[in-house]
Design a protein around this nucleic acid. Structure first.
Lengths: 210, 210
DNA sequence: GTCTATAATACGATAGAC
DNA sequence: GTCTATCGTATTATAGAC
């Protein structure tokens, strides 16, 4: 009579594995669509463990969002010290890093889109995302003040820049059908997107009249 | 003994009402998240009617996507005869009309985002969206050939333009929390977005060196 | 063509043994 | 700390009366 081998008991490890699998599942289906059974099997534990470490599926989801915000602030734009650079260089760098982040962390954007669409931003609201967003605003405002950027609405411009960077990745599952012969996820195409996006954005923002 | 008044029997009307309510529900929650009960109550019929007129929730969803593609082709860019205009005017018009379409048909973008995210474009693939997408490509290519647009990758540029137009609307539920004092859905703000988007896109595309 | 009632199942969450 | 077994409910879909 062989039994299922029992798991090594390690709270830290188990909790981290659940969070990882949860991020994967939430990225695919969002809070509502995610299945606790999938999170359990994805992390190699039973469903009951999820409720031992986290109060509910909802709490687990909130924790995933928290982790996301932490990761973004750590790995993201903070360490680049963009404020001290020339606005043009700062903006180019920020856009490049942001696209790179999207390419290497595809779950990030997807979770936030699911959040906006199916939860109407209910949980997004509970988390402070401002740091990363404000960097971009500051760069734009500084560039306008210095005259190297055109006079634009900083908020709308930030949204437009975001759209240029994001759409390629987050609408991928639809637009891949428009170009069946091109692998939009290949490093070469992503690099092309990054270059074209930077070119497009800079042309849209930089003041050529000087 | 009062009874629930029976519905007037009219197949056409009932079917249309179900489709309307379904579009509403799918726009909110996508195929998986949508509840047939909500679609039923939203259209004033019972759940059984959905299965009488449509094979299943899935079939109903496919029909909604079909309707969407039809509406887009009818109301959209086709009637503008953009090919005969100067590329700059054509692009400005296309962007303006597209933003206007998004503003007046918010369900359109939401359904497609849900489709990309939760179904990985499985049903999107079954429908021909090419017309509307190809208009934009043709405008860009014509402008580049004539020299009034810069030499850009037409496909990537089309994606970037799409991102500029869309993000404002489709990420609304998240970004509204970033600007609690501004109503991003007011006609004034949408008009500002449209103007800024056109300005941004034209600056990114038009060849200034001539 | 429309309804009520219900079958069948999937899923979040919990109890309790080990 | 981890497991198995199960409860309770929500939900898609169908059967059958009117």
């Amino acid at each position: 009579m062989s039994r299922k081998p029992k798991r090594i008991r390690d709270a830290e490890v188990t909790k981290a594995q659940i969070l990882d699998a949860a991020m994967e599942e939430f990225a695919k289906y969002g809070l509502n669509g995610a299945r606790t059974e999938n999170i359990a099997s994805g992390s190699g534990v039973t469903k009951a463990m999820i409720y031992y470490y986290f109060e509910s599926k909802e709490t687990l989801y909130q924790e995933v969002l928290n982790q996301l915000a932490l990761q973004l602030n750590e790995l993201g734009l903070a360490k680049l010290n963009l404020k001290e650079l020339h606005p043009e260089i700062a903006l180019k760098t920020a856009v490049y890093e942001f696209i790179n982040y999207q390419a290497t962390h595809p779950k990030f954007g997807r979770i936030l889109w699911h959040e906006a669409l199916q939860n109407q931003g209910k949980y997004y609201k509970q988390i402070d995302w401002n740091q990363s967003y404000k960097y971009l605003l500051e760069i734009l405002e500084k560039g306008m003040k210095q005259g190297c950027f055109r006079q634009l609405d900083p908020f709308l411009t930030a949204m437009h820049i975001n759209g240029v960077c994001n759409f390629y990745f987050d609408a991928y599952e639809n637009i891949k059908h428009l170009t069946p012969n091109i692998d939009l996820r290949s490093p070469e195409m992503i690099e092309k997107h990054a270059e074209a996006a930077i070119d497009f954005i800079m042309a849209g923002v930089v003041n050529k009249g000087e």
